[in-house]
């Protein structure tokens, strides 16, 4: 991997997944059912149809044989298009990818969890010596909205981050998404196992926003304080300039203008969303204690929190 590629590597905190521009580009071609061919070390070639080329380069573009490289010296040497951080081609590809996959559906198959391990953990919930019998085991799928929220902090400069809360559409609970995305499968599980959602999408969005607002309220807001100080300074200058004309239209216009520029705010907008079906495991148990007394119990395993809870 060349130094330019290392530079674009992005380490997703907490996920342990390294995304490189290279892998992203090849994945893009793969999803377009295109196979770039390496024609010499570091130089790839791919035939692109007009429709895709137009998406990349605008409506005047025609089909073409795209030669590309990730190394600047090779781009110069062979006249191939350079794909590196910020380059024209990387931008056109990234922007096109950004337009795709705005909404998807996927489910977590129930076979990914080791039942023996779960049952062992379940037993640990009860005092030793109790005998536990599983009377019934069922999987119900809860619908979740995994929403990608672009959070833009407008201060003296713009700072963007992405928040991705997961909203349970049955309970309204907002949590962090912690399951590996590789375990999910495209589509829907068996319809009979899906619980009806109780929350509208609008309410789910509101819940996600509220959750994000709480996080924002607790985080360091120095950026906003700096911007407020600047606003105050600019307002003083403006008041001085318009001395004696503070009720003029021009003064109000300029006041609005500096507020637009310096009044700190956070904008939250949805980038994309996934409707995820995540199983909830329900076990109906009969627990017989040392005295021989029987009790009916119900226990749930929630893969999101990775916890067992008595119902």
């Amino acid at each position: 991997m060349g130094s330019s590629l290392i530079a674009v590597s992005l380490f997703l905190r907490g996920r342990g997944v390294v995304i490189t521009l290279t892998s992203l580009v090849f994945r893009f071609f793969e999803l377009c059912r295109l196979e770039p061919v390496q024609i010499r070390p570091g130089i790839w070639q791919v035939q692109i149809e007009q429709s895709l080329m137009q998406e990349l380069d605008g409506r005047r573009a025609g089909n073409r044989l795209l030669q590309f490289t990730f190394e600047q010296h090779l781009a110069k040497k062979y006249g191939a298009e350079l794909i590196c951080e910020g380059s024209y081609r990387s931008n056109t590809i990234l922007r096109l990818i950004q337009k795709q996959g705005l909404l998807t559906r996927a489910y977590l198959p129930d076979y990914v969890f080791d039942q023996a391990m779960l049952q062992k953990r379940m037993l640990e919930k009860f005092p030793q010596g109790n005998r536990i019998y599983i009377v019934k085991y069922e999987t119900v799928y809860d619908q979740h909205l995994w929403i990608q929220l672009l959070t833009t902090r407008w201060g003296l400069e713009k700072r963007e981050t992405i928040a991705d809360p997961l909203i349970n559409l049955s309970t309204g609970e907002v949590s962090k998404f912690t399951i590996s995305t590789r375990l999910f499968l495209q589509g829907l599980p068996n319809k009979n196992t899906v619980r009806t959602r109780k929350l509208s999408f609008k309410k789910a969005f509101a819940a996600a926003v509220n959750n994000l607002e709480q996080i924002l309220a607790e985080e360091n807001d120095e950026w906003a304080q700096i911007s407020l100080q600047k606003l105050e300074k600019e307002q003083t200058k403006l008041d001085h300039f318009y001395e004696g004309r503070l009720d003029s239209k021009a003064y109000h216009l300029k006041t609005e203008e500096i507020k637009r520029r310096f009044l700190p705010k956070v904008e939250i907008d949805t980038l994309r969303a996934a409707l995820l079906y995540i199983p909830l495991y329900r076990y109906r148990l009969i627990v017989v204690d040392r005295t021989g007394q029987e009790q009916n119990k119900c226990i749930y395993y929630d893969p999101i929190s990775n916890s067992l809870a008595l119902g």
């Binding site: 998807t104 996927a106 495209q186 996934a274």
Partner: peptide, 8 residues
């Protein structure tokens, strides 16, 4: 598709 979502 899920794949396009993840790539996006």
């Amino acid at each position: 598709t899920w794949d396009w979502f993840l790539l996006g």
